[in-house]
Design a protein around this nucleic acid. Structure first.
Lengths: 341, 341
DNA sequence: TGCTAAATGAAGTACGTACCTCATGTCGAG
DNA sequence: CTCGACATGAGGTACGTACTTCATTTAGCA
């Protein structure tokens, strides 16, 4: 019993192939009663469209673009690499993906790039960007032209994106806080919090979540104000070193951003006290730090998963299909020395 | 510039379509020099076979079977559900998947089921089973007949399986141990370890890993002998209750198996002391326990991921393709109250 | 009843690849 | 030089679906 085809539908419904095709592809010119009959038969015989054959016939190909900041830290290098790998892979299934890297912290340039995109030949865009009014408008324009827009990594809650692919950063901050709270136990200590900058929405949310759980569940722990290092490794090393020297009672460090090399340097230089450290993103630096025992835990989001999920979503949106919700859920992963690989 | 087709190869190489086809599908009757020339052109013009069209022409369809124990605990119910979902999904891409549920702990019945499988129409099998000599032989037989065999969840290291999809359970045990060690701090305590049975390879390995890290890094902690509850919820409740009553100095519990309802009952009944609890597998029970603060951490393997990965592997094996290694890596996930979803 | 607009059918081509048949070309061994 | 083995070409059909064209039937309405 081979799987039923359009011919079987036609035969069973007593109509011609042309009519079946009109129903299947929602073309006009079919009486409602006939549509109904064909639909019934489709259901009855369990017809399932062969998407491969359909795409072949339709000469369908997908054009997707990833728009990401042109930062060069380990996390963004990794992101870039993962997208490149996806590009290679996607050649086999009629999908063209390109990367547009835009200057970070320059909404104007970003909008200019978005305007450049040719929405005629474009099916989907996955974008990581801060949410400004201009960007919101540019996204709206793309959506109006039928382009599927997916936010990745950093949410755009007030924009008209189809979906967001990434973690809940408030929960990520809470998770970091819970870990440190449990590691530290009941004695009062200070926690040093450091970040790249507090402009990025994801960083702000992590701090929010961190503060919230600390207040709720670990009121005996004193969370210091955020030290901002502006994505500068040397500056971070200096600031952390100074902070630790000034307050030896600091019992733990929470690193909100993904750049950690300066932090690692500062921590390894002066190691009189055992301090608990939780950081974000698994990179070569943070992996080594976990292995050396400099970091105790890393909160991670799987970049490969994010990229693949975004591609699946753009494709599903273009086809008007739905997908497996659980597969698209990006998890807040807790990585310790023992579950590193 | 549309993507190159077989016609473009033929044109550029100055040969006929028939020859191109012979080269592409490794059919005999082509001079080595010609093969070489065609290969070069393929590389030059960047030809990539349209697998959809190829499968269509080839009338290819995949027949896969999942062989799993017919246990009814939450974890296995979940596993069953995930496979069923995959079955529904797979209809669209010419893939037929079926489930064979075999009595647990009955290698004879398992082998009988394996013998029944018709290797003529079968392309791949994903199996979760203990490794006995008979099962090893049955797997060998299937492989010899050209069936791709994938081990899932519980490893079969001495069998001739193509791949194993699942976590490293020794590392999972070490991760649990590390968490408890860090939660407990420096004061000496006892840890109660409970399991379903110590027959299953995965459980044994978890215990191994747990003991190893405790000896190495937390020698001040006393790990008690494993309490076996034989997958019996009531028995577990009773045994745990008795153990906790007898030794109030127990500061933590490590639950190796996936069935946790008896444990939760025993723990909630008597709650004088704050005890750290780490368990395995995220089910309704363990999720609720995390939310209530009865469990502190759950070590999880993503069943949906495992099943999808096994399917991708069976398909890749059938096609002689390779796949994205990082996507197939099953992670040892640490789930706390704050990163539950 | 006749007219018009809408509904339906018949039959094709195309997509990119697989696979088949048969004719023809080429080369080396005897 | 001839024969046979092997290499290659030409041209086809098929897979399941999309989409087109044009002819024909049916329904609605005056």
């Amino acid at each position: 019993m081979p799987r039923p085809t359009v011919h079987d539908i036609a035969k069973n419904a007593g109509v011609s192939l042309a009519t079946v095709d009109r129903v299947l592809n929602r073309r006009p010119g079919v009486r409602p009663a006939t549509v109904e009959r064909v639909r019934e038969v489709i259901h009855e015989i369990g017809y399932i469209r062969d998407v491969a054959a359909a795409n072949l016939a339709r000469q369908r190909n997908y054009q997707f673009v990833f728009v990401i900041p042109d930062l060069t830290s380990a996390f963004f290098t990794q992101l870039n690499g993962v997208i490149s790998e996806a590009i290679t892979r996607s050649l086999v299934d009629r999908t063209d993906i390109s990367i547009v890297r835009v200057p970070a912290n320059d909404p104007h340039a970003l909008v200019a790039e978005l305007e450049k995109l040719d929405s005629k030949s474009l099916n989907g865009i996955a974008i990581m960007a801060p949410e400004t009014p201009q960007i919101r408008d540019a996204i709206k324009r793309l959506k109006d032209q039928g382009v599927s827009v997916i936010g990745i990594i950093s949410d755009l809650p007030n924009s008209d994106v189809d979906q967001f692919v990434g973690i809940n950063n408030i929960a990520a901050g809470r998770t970091a806080g819970l870990l440190l709270g449990m590691f530290l136990g009941p004695q009062p200590v200070d926690i040093l919090v450091i970040a790249g900058s507090m402009q990025a929405r994801d960083h702000v949310e992590r701090r929010q979540g961190f503060d919230a759980i600390m207040t709720e569940q670990f009121p005996h722990i004193n969370v210091l104000p955020t030290v901002e290092a502006w994505d500068d490794s040397h500056l971070m090393e200096e600031l952390v070193g100074r902070a630790l020297a000034a307050r030896p009672e600091i019992g733990a460090v929470y690193s909100i951003a993904s750049g950690n090399s300066g932090l690692v340097k500062a921590l390894t230089k002066r190691c009189p006290v055992r301090r608990f450290v939780v950081a974000h993103e698994l990179t070569d630096t943070s992996r080594a730090a976990l292995e050396n025992g400099v970091f105790d835990a890393v909160i991670k989001q799987d970049v490969g998963h994010i990229v693949r999920s975004a591609i699946r979503m753009m494709r599903a949106n273009s086809d008007g299909r739905d997908l497996i919700a659980s597969q698209e859920k990006i998890r807040i992963e807790v990585v310790l020395k023992e579950n590193l690989n």
